Amino acid sequence: MAKKTSVPHNEMSFLDHLEELRWHLIRSVLAVVIIGIVAFVFSGFIFDVIIFGPSRMNFPTYEFFCKAATYINIESDFCKDKLPFTIQSRMMSGQFSADIWTAIWVGIIVGFPYVLWELWKFISPGLHPNERKHSRGFILIASILFFMGVLFGYYVVAPLSINFLGTYQVSEIVLNEFDLDSYIGTVRSAVLACGILFELPIIIYFLTKVGLVTPEIMKKYRKIALVIVLILSAVITPPDVASQVIVAIPVLILYQVSIFISKRVLKSEAKREAKKAKKNVKPS
């Protein structure tokens, strides 16, 4: 019986590539669904402890800012006993729908490293051996950056947004009674936006590899980047300067790290080209 030979990645037809991509996507979706089912089973813990955590004044972020305010002898909204708002569901299927969608989003966030791995398995056979070698650790670093962003969004951006918007009133006559979807959307957008923002060094790495970005370009447009970062900070945070600055600082640090990464990539490329040129020079 003849052995089945594997077709090299670069010799596969367009339909073969699509078929391979389909299976990578199926496995990714399956992983998200499995994690989502587990999240749905433990929805009580996810809602009571994690999602509704920033709505209580014993949340670690509020306690930290309260202690800081007490230390410098100033009054602070972070030292209140309770946030002046309630969360309600005004639709018949509101809580069930929120439970399902939250489980799906938990599956996407927790399953991010696996989804990234499946994507990498599809892309990596098309890379040169040297490119694969220099891209080792990509999944680990990208996952660490993503989860750092998620934690930053959850412990910094989300509580600042909830505290500001939850205590803001145009008049004492108007009560803050937030819809469940609105509250969850605030937490979700803060967490995901920061998770994506923290992937900046990885994005710059690949843009430098394909020649679209250089350290010189990044330095030249640093001021424009600062404005963009402040705009993004304003979008994902409440409209107060302190919150925007708190979010902008780590992003600007990541921007500086990205410049360093871009330099290293170009230096590595130059060394590789020099070695290749040396090999191609025939001795006379």
Rank of each mutant, 00 (worst) to 15 (best):
34 I>Y: 03
231 I>V: 13
109 I>V: 12
25 L>G: 03
211 G>E: 09
169 Q>L: 14
33 V>P: 04
16 D>G: 11
16 D>C: 09
116 L>V: 02
71 Y>R: 11
248 A>F: 02
164 F>H: 14
50 I>M: 07
124 S>C: 05
76 S>M: 10
173 I>V: 13
270 A>P: 01
192 L>D: 03
118 E>M: 15
190 A>W: 01
264 R>F: 04
163 N>K: 15
281 V>L: 15
259 I>L: 08
273 E>T: 05
98 A>V: 00
275 K>W: 02
101 W>E: 04
274 A>S: 07
250 P>M: 10
128 H>D: 12
130 N>G: 04
214 T>G: 14
11 E>M: 15
171 S>W: 10
86 T>E: 12
10 N>L: 15
259 I>G: 03
201 P>N: 08
213 V>R: 05
64 F>Y: 09
73 N>H: 14
119 L>I: 06
88 Q>L: 11
120 W>P: 04
129 P>Q: 11
73 N>V: 06
5 T>I: 11
197 L>V: 05
15 L>R: 10
213 V>K: 03
37 I>K: 10
259 I>S: 02
278 K>S: 05
75 E>S: 14
194 C>Q: 03
202 I>W: 09
7 V>S: 01
88 Q>D: 06
265 V>L: 03
95 Q>P: 00
78 F>K: 04
237 T>Y: 04
86 T>R: 14
230 L>T: 05
109 I>P: 04
22 R>Q: 10
272 R>T: 04
282 K>D: 08
235 V>C: 12
254 L>T: 02
3 K>S: 08
275 K>L: 14
219 K>W: 13
90 R>M: 13
93 S>Q: 00
12 M>W: 07
255 Y>T: 06
171 S>R: 10
160 L>W: 07
172 E>P: 09
252 L>T: 03
266 L>K: 04
283 P>L: 13
203 I>A: 15
92 M>W: 00
29 V>C: 10
101 W>I: 02
93 S>A: 01
153 G>Y: 00
274 A>Y: 05
205 Y>W: 07
41 V>Y: 12
225 A>M: 12
123 I>R: 12
227 V>S: 12
82 K>I: 05
62 Y>L: 13
183 Y>N: 01
219 K>A: 13
147 F>K: 10
161 S>C: 06
74 I>R: 10
57 M>T: 12
17 H>Q: 14
23 W>F: 12
193 A>V: 01
94 G>H: 01
273 E>W: 00
8 P>M: 11
161 S>V: 02
133 K>F: 07
34 I>A: 14
222 R>Q: 10
188 R>L: 10
16 D>V: 08
55 S>H: 03
154 Y>H: 00
4 K>M: 09
106 V>C: 07
136 R>C: 02
175 L>C: 05
197 L>P: 00
11 E>D: 14
123 I>A: 14
179 D>G: 11
50 I>T: 02
25 L>P: 02
